[in-house]
């Protein structure tokens, strides 16, 4: 029982990080029908820029304290990532809005590759240890169940960010313009919505969330490196598809579910496969779920809109 509870907690923590990244995929897909392959790498850029800023802060103001230092890291990393997202959309994707359908995806793959290369040029190919400014020493609220302060912070911050995004999209003028653009950006622009600005804004918000998720992931695992974005990126995309791509609530639900499946699955896979599989197969869950959902229910759990651009 304790193990199950433990795995649920781990799953929630990992899942809320997936959910944050999944939001970026789902918003862009909802509006442009594009799988922004480079989204996971924005996460990586966010983490590495934050690392750079934190290291700088630790050298310059050694008495600043842990939380302000982390905050400084975020204050630098989030705008940099947002700028990155903005530039990528402007420079690469915008020109391809009416191109044959595979062209934007291939470009996105190229951009992903390019971001990794840039990261390697700036930071090299090393694995950096990420300062654990929030304690990772586990607390034991119930006997046999552990949760670290950093994990609590991750859960709270993700919940707040997701709530804020829901309010933004559903309760504000900008949100209404976003929803109109997602419905049909040509018609939205006829109705006086500046669709290009909204699309840029979508990339900016998504990239900001990804940067925060990147810092969370790096803080949780204590490392950052130039290819750290690929796997969380793919998994977050899976989460978005699982929940119903184009649907914000779906991305959150999908992220949490995927986190739970992975964590619980990894815990029990050895038992259920008679020792043939073990937890090193954990990453398979996401890919299998991705395939199964796309084949049998391409609209995902919450998606009702059939995004068929034949």
């Amino acid at each position: 029982m304790e193990t199950l509870l433990q795995q649920i907690i781990n799953g929630l923590v990992v899942g809320s990080m997936y959910a944050l990244v999944a939001l970026g995929y789902t918003m862009v897909y909802g509006i442009l029908g594009l799988i922004n392959f480079a989204h996971g790498d924005i996460l990586m850029i966010g983490a590495l820029v934050a690392l750079q800023a934190i290291t700088f802060a630790q050298h310059t103001w050694p008495h600043l304290g842990a939380l302000p230092t982390l905050a400084f890291g975020l204050v630098v990393a989030v705008p940099v990532s947002m700028l990155m997202g903005y530039v990528i959309e402007r420079a690469a994707y915008r020109r391809l809005r009416n191109a044959p359908r595979l062209a934007p995806l291939i470009t996105a793959i190229g951009v992903s590759f390019l971001l990794q290369t840039i990261a390697m040029i700036v930071w090299g190919r090393n694995y950096y240890s990420f300062p654990q400014l929030i304690s990772t020493t586990p607390l034991q609220p119930v006997k046999g169940v552990y949760i670290a302060p950093v994990q609590i912070v991750i859960l709270i911050v993700s919940a707040v960010l997701m709530a804020a995004l829901i309010v933004l999209v559903n309760k504000t003028r900008i949100g209404r313009a976003m929803r109109a653009t997602a419905e049909n950006h040509r018609i939205a622009s006829l109705m006086g919505v500046d669709a290009n600005a909204i699309i840029s804004l979508t990339f900016v918000i998504g990239s900001g969330l990804a940067a925060i998720a990147g810092v969370m992931i790096a803080s949780n695992y204590g490392i950052a490196h130039s290819t750290m974005g690929t796997l969380p990126g793919l998994k977050a995309f899976t989460a978005a598809v699982l929940g119903g791509i184009g649907n914000l609530g779906g991305a959150m639900l999908g992220g949490i579910l995927l986190g739970l499946v992975e964590s619980i699955g990894a815990g029990y896979i050895e038992q259920f496969s008679f020792g043939f599989f073990n937890s090193s197969y954990q990453d398979i869950f996401a890919f299998v779920i991705l395939g199964v959902v796309l084949v049998f229910r391409p609209t995902g759990l919450l998606g009702e809109r059939v995004a068929d651009r034949a």
């Binding site: 359908r101 995806l105 598809v241 890919f287 299998v288 991705l290």
Partner: peptide, 15 residues
């Protein structure tokens, strides 16, 4: 599956 979904699923298969 449609083009971009196919791409991602085949990627998953490779992994």
């Amino acid at each position: 599956l449609r083009g971009d979904y196919l791409a991602i699923v085949t990627l998953g298969f490779g992994e």
